[in-house]
Nucleic acid binder design. Structure first.
Lengths: 206, 206
DNA sequence: TTTTAGTTTAACTATTTGGTTAATATTAAC
DNA sequence: GTTAATATTAACCAAATAGTTAAACTAAAA
């Protein structure tokens, strides 16, 4: 046999949730075992240690995200077109895996270096993106601003409502969970429009 | 005597830092005691438990933030003017107390209800704000969108770069910490311009 | 100066929790 | 069906750490 695939995946899935909800320090091996309906010793049998398990789960999270996001960067597209695609895919993917932002946020305060290293090891290339933005600004297609500011803005508008879910629901939507889902759903289009209205310079009609 | 004020404040200050640097789960009661130069038992004598201490630290954080934010809401101002003031004060205050977003993040995943209650108990009134935004949209002064979306956007653009500090520094700024400080400093104006360009409808010249 | 109420400490306890071990159950090979 | 390899479990261990206790200290009141 050598390692039951059912079991190993069950562990991974439940570890994903536990780590996502509680962060590395808050997550409990016993709790992961309970979620998966197995004995705690099995976790160590399959994945050796909490740390090792965490690293695999984190890599899995990026394996989900990165390929989808990369598809949205087509070199023929304008920055605005890229933003439209990126925002839609980003929000859609996080809707399916809402643990991911918590996962990242928790690890930022825990082991930021490991996280930075992991992201740098993916195909995501922020320098290329910065250059492309700068070029369009120089060509008068986008409002002048530091490209980093634009990138931060795009990410902020995508991620924040997931991290702040209980606050958005509790403070802005009177606890209405359906309204929250609609708000997120609407953001797939809303966020891109919001950004583009701010940065796009319309070409003068020929 | 009944509780030495020096001691209780010394505890609070050092707890604020310990929780801020390590998060709730990473913080150690012994470490807080050591920082404050007192015996660990005193922590419990003054604040009963780790969770109770954290709750008070959290309240203290809001006592810092809320009055400053409230000053930015002048009923005579337009929504855009309010946003300008709000963003500047928000970013300035968090720059002085960068621990605060971390507290909020922890409480969101740990005791969201308690957090929502805490915020509701302040003078901050999101319903009033929503109405004001809606009114200006109806008057044709702002682009039509759900007021909640605009509020989420403002908060997202303010908070995110603090939470993602190591990522912004490590991935967008080649680890340059001075560049990070400048980026944040610039955002005091940049974020408001970004938002206003997107939502403000210029009045036709009379 | 003695008493008393409140404050602080050193030493201790209980619990939590990541990890191990040795025994048991299951599956596949022969 | 017996054996050998693999998978799973119950019970345990050790370290870390939140929380307690009882004694010692301090300062104000009597």
């Amino acid at each position: 046999m050598k390692y039951n695939k059912d079991t190993s995946e069950k562990i991974l899935e439940n570890a994903f949730e536990e780590f996502g909800e509680n962060g590395y320090n808050g997550a409990r091996m016993q709790s992961i075992a309970d979620r998966a309906g197995i004995n705690k010793a099995l976790l160590h049998y399959y994945y050796r240690s909490k740390d090792a398990l965490f690293e695999i789960v984190m890599k899995k999270a990026f394996q989900i995200m990165v390929p989808k996001l990369m598809k949205t960067f087509n070199s023929d597209d304008s920055v605005c077109e890229s933003i439209e695609k990126f925002v839609e895919i980003y929000i859609e993917t996080i809707m399916k895996h809402p643990q991911i932002p918590g996962f990242v946020i928790h690890e930022i305060s825990n082991k930021p270096d490991r996280l930075v290293r992991l992201i740098k090891s993916t195909e995501i290339n922020f320098n290329l993106l910065k250059q492309k933005i700068q070029k369009e600004m120089d060509e008068g297609k986008l409002v002048q601003m530091a490209p980093e500011q634009l990138i931060v803005n795009v990410l902020a508008l995508c991620v924040f409502p997931f991290m702040a879910k209980p606050l958005v629901t509790g403070l802005l939507l009177d606890g209405d969970k359906k309204a929250y889902k609609k708000l997120i759903e609407d953001r797939k289009k809303e966020v891109a429009s919001f950004i583009i209205r701010s940065v796009k310079i319309e070409e003068p009609k020929s």
